[in-house]
């Protein structure tokens, strides 16, 4: 297995730490004039998202992690797995568990292009497109004409996710949503 020495550490490098794939966020060379050289590293665990800090003596190595960031189209879910397809012409499909998809499942109804991180060819994380458009399936009746006031109410989307929307939104409206914040952006059509 390939490995990297501390002097090769740089942001974006994918390595194995305690059996989990990690991405190096930052790496700093620290050395007392007369003392041991260290490399201080911040890594993101790509499975849990948690950030780890470690200190290595210069020359120590970490195994490389076979991690690939790909763009895949979400096809459908069978309830247990979420199925994605490569759009590079190979039509290769991957299935991701509910744990891997996590909260992202609330933004996926089909045909969204997602960033899928593969480790040893298996999905370990899925990021939805920054913006998705989803129809409202359930919400309190809209208040006509009230397009400017600040109030909000909950609305359930076609995927089952619930978000806060302005009072004028009605069932059947298609909404543009920012998946990074989970917030309503605008009404696409009435």
């Amino acid at each position: 297995m390939a490995s990297y020495s501390t002097n090769e550490f740089r942001p974006g490098l994918k390595v194995l730490l305690e059996g989990d794939p990690c991405s190096i966020l930052a790496s700093e060379f620290v050395k007392p004039g007369k003392g041991q050289a260290f490399t201080r590293v911040k890594l993101r665990n790509l499975k849990t998202g948690r950030v780890w800090e470690r200190t290595y003596r210069s020359g120590e190595t970490l195994d490389a992690a076979d991690v690939l960031e790909t763009q895949m189209e979400f096809l459908y879910t069978d309830g247990d797995f979420w199925h994605f397809m490569n759009t590079d012409g190979s039509f290769e499909q991957k299935e991701a568990s509910a744990t891997v998809v996590g909260d992202v499942k609330g933004w996926l109804q089909g045909q969204e292009m997602c960033s899928v991180t593969l480790w040893n060819d298996e999905p370990i994380s899925v990021v939805a497109p920054n913006f998705v458009e989803l129809a409202v399936t359930e919400t309190d009746p809209g208040i006509r004409g009230d397009t400017a006031q600040g109030g909000t109410k909950p609305a359930t989307l076609a995927t089952g996710a619930t978000i806060k929307v302005p009072l004028f939104v009605e069932i059947g409206d298609v909404l543009r949503i920012d998946t990074r914040t989970g917030e309503y952006v605008s009404r696409v059509k009435a």
Partner: peptide, 23 residues
């Protein structure tokens, strides 16, 4: 506890502690 490898010696430990303390 700061992430120094288990096989490192006391000189390395002192260097790391001082570097952390003054940094």
């Amino acid at each position: 506890g700061l992430g120094l490898a288990r096989d490192a010696g006391i000189e390395d430990a002192h260097d790391l502690l001082l570097a952390e303390a003054i940094g």
